[in-house]
Design a protein around this nucleic acid. Structure first.
Lengths: 333, 333
DNA sequence: CTGTTAGCGCGTTCAG
DNA sequence: CTGAACGCGCTAACAG
């Protein structure tokens, strides 16, 4: 059996309560006894039994990091950056539990007895059901990547609409007018936002919106490839394509190569996300860096704040995105 | 407050003991009462308090998925595949807790009271300290990706040496003799194995081993780029390069492009890992698919088996790897 | 400042 | 087949 506070109590010649207080740095304890107890605990390699502790304090030290799904639609790079960011703050004080919302048949198992707090990397409006469920159960939550209108929620995200607009504006600044967009996965909020940014840029520059230039994708390589094929088979081919993420941009690039086109000479491409790989492509990809890792880090700080200090004011925090100019866009005469 | 078995007991007019037994499918209970109790539990939306339950059964429902590090050296694709594989088996019965070994200052917090079992995606010999620590504490463990000599441990991995040899043999079959290798991160077991496979292939084919053709990398894009620059500045340039993973292969490819070389016409490249992106590169990358997701899945099955049935026989299970032939290798006259 | 006592929610003897 | 009583390891009143 493991060593418990009672064992320590016996050795120290005090009650187990005193041990508990000493170990929890209670102010109502003499420094002398406290130090003595801590020393003994150290020597015995005492580790508190979380189950017992949590049973009475009604806490777990679990923080759930939820994604809409862990399967299609969540790119490796995006996933990795999020986890890294969150984990870098969590460290060993909390357990980081990774879940896909779609892993659950129902939400009975999502309770405050299982999670002290939840960080949701939200990619779809369908998550709302989950979110309301979590709120109803009074579990602290921070939502990343999507804006929730409910004013008691903390949301952290980049303004994709503005960032997309910047990206498309960059194409326009380079003389492009026939600009296509490959959309993200249907139903994802980000898909909608990036499309809006694209439309904003065109409209503000009084460029005619051609519906043929708006094609659906699903955020994965393959869909980018397919979408590009569709664009290139149009009677009038666009001179530039804004892809709603980098993976699709890569797919699109390869479709272009396959048709014997050169990037950026024959067609310009802009991505979104700045995958770790994008700078190493040939040509290197001009794209938008959303600093996902920072968002994860910020989310982790917030949820801990929420858990430990109950600061319950909802807010929407926008993080900076940044257009990274590389070599996949050429000037259009 | 949440509903407890006592509440159910009151409503059902039985003792809490009976409720406990009914909910745990004890054989010593009349079907009639059991069903009645279950129904009430259902209606009340009863969820057992894990802390209480675990306190007495001395379990947690946590499975730890540990990586050597979550930072440099673990590629997004590799990380993502592993988590996906494991998670697909874990589902909602267990919590999947993700950790980097290097997140811990010491291993005091790694106890059987915190993890029912641990899956270690082991990338370095340095992990041994951690492994022995886990074993000492009698926590069930499954090690992925590395072979541990201790015969009470279950290991699941591909034989990287054989797989690498196959890859290099493929180059030789295509007429290449001046074959370089870009090594992985120093100290990683996989680095060693893949180098061995490379040497095996050369030796068996009686090809002279040129030390200039063996250059260090760190598994990331950049190191592949740098290593390739080094190779291309050699008085005698290799006609083919075996890269110890795909990320470095991509870096290497771009270094070649930068020098005005064509792949595979001027130089052939083979990778290792089959990143999700590799098929979409230009040219698409010939590489070795290790089916990481399968390894993760297998590991998850094993650890659950170990936890629930205590089958403690160590074993080493090799999973198949597969050479995926694409377009980054040309025949050498 | 310290000890006594109680109880968190649950599973498990041991009697019936 | 069912219930009463106990204890898992810990924290939180309440008394001193």
């Amino acid at each position: 059996m493991n060593v418990t506070i009672k064992d320590i109590a016996r050795l120290a010649g005090v009650s187990h309560t005193t041990v508990s207080r000493a170990l929890n740095n209670s102010p109502l304890i003499k420094d002398e006894t406290k130090n003595k107890i801590k020393e003994i605990a150290q020597q015995l390699n005492y580790v508190p039994n979380l189950n017992a502790k949590n049973l009475v304090t009604d806490r777990t030290f679990n923080i759930g990091l939820f994604f809409s799904t862990l399967n299609i639609g969540t790119t490796p790079s995006f996933f990795n950056q999020t986890v890294k960011g969150v984990n870098s703050i969590i460290k060993d004080k909390y357990n980081l539990i990774i879940k896909g919302i779609d892993d659950y048949k129902d939400f009975n198992l999502v309770t405050s007895k299982r999670f002290d707090g939840i960080i949701l990397m939200s990619q779809s409006e369908k998550d709302n059901l989950f979110i309301y469920n979590v709120i109803e159960k009074k579990i602290p939550i921070v939502v990343l990547n999507r804006e929730i209108k409910c004013d008691s929620i903390i949301c952290i995200l980049t303004d994709d609409r503005i960032a997309s607009k910047q990206a498309v504006n960059y194409l326009i600044d380079n003389g492009h007018k026939d600009i296509a967009i490959i959309l993200g996965k249907e139903g994802f909020k980000s898909t909608e936002k990036r499309k809006q940014g694209y439309l904003d840029a065109l409209m503000e520059n009084k460029i005619f919106i051609n519906n043929d230039f708006i094609v659906q994708g699903t955020y994965d390589f393959k869909s980018g490839y397919t979408a590009m094929e569709k664009l290139l088979s149009l009677p009038k081919v666009p001179s530039a394509v804004f892809c709603s993420n980098d993976d699709m941009a890569i797919g699109a690039m390869n479709a272009a190569f396959q048709m014997g086109l050169k990037v950026p000479d024959d067609i310009s491409i802009v991505g979104f996300d700045d995958n770790s790989i994008s700078q190493f492509l040939n040509p290197s990809l001009t794209t938008v860096n959303r600093h996902i890792e920072d968002i994860g880090r910020e989310g982790a700080k917030m949820i801990i704040e929420l858990i430990e200090n109950c600061e319950a004011n909802g807010m929407i925090k926008y993080m900076d995105a940044e257009l990274v100019i590389r070599k996949s866009v050429s000037k259009n005469a």
